[in-house]
Amino acid sequence: MIINVQDPSLEAHNLTVIYHRKPVLWNIDFSLPKGEIIGIMGPNGAGKSTLIKAILELAPLNSGYSKIFGKSLNEVRKKVSYIPQRQTIDWDFPASVSDVVMMGRYPSLGLFKRITKSDREIVRLALEQVNMTEYANRQISQLSGGQQQRVFLARALAQQADLYLLDEPFVGVDASTEAAIMQLLRTMKNEGKTIVVVHHDLHTAAEYFNWLVLINASLIASGPTEKVFTDELLRNTYSGKLTVLSQVGDVMREQNFPVREK
């Protein structure tokens, strides 16, 4: 089940990444629609994060290429915002919340241009959107996991991109932050932004995403959630080992979408 789209936001062709002779990604080929919230799912070690890194040229490609809005990454870099996993950062770093969010302005400022009033305004608005205004001058070492994730999201918002790539944004985050982030992502989607989320929680997948990409080193499926979120495809993705997971799939189909009503 691999559905391709016309005029894609993001397309990958034959992406292959091999680390130490072990294929992490194998011949991944898909195209994603614009203006949707897209989930990339698969078991641990399936290469979900590597896929995003390969698209951003942060992981060395052994073969294949990807295009964003029909162009190469270098042509559209300013339109792309990457939110790495929160845990890859040293949060004891001497920096304030607004220092980090201001970083989102650097792609348009370059390394030397001065920060202007409008940059500060954009940062202020971004913090407001993630409900972190009162934390603007707070040390980042004093933040909770959920607040850290909000800061990362604010930094991405300050970039004013069209495509957002989030790597496991809900890991170690409290339920209220998760709900707030999801609400924000939906608002962004309504503004026409494309959002790609690496995610591992099957319970929430059907509720969160309009489009799903299932990978396990190679591409298992890519398409609208209602077509892809099936027992069989999930079983293929998770190698059928985890029976619990296929039961989750059953439950979800029985109850119809969305599973979790507010």
Partner: peptide
């Protein structure tokens, strides 16, 4: 002074820095 921004972004968050073309 000249390299401050590059030094700080690539120190704080190398993958973000690389993704933005630094």
């Amino acid at each position: 002074l000249v390299g401050y921004r590059g030094l700080w972004v690539s120190t704080f968050d190398p993958s973000f820095a690389a993704a933005t073309g630094i």
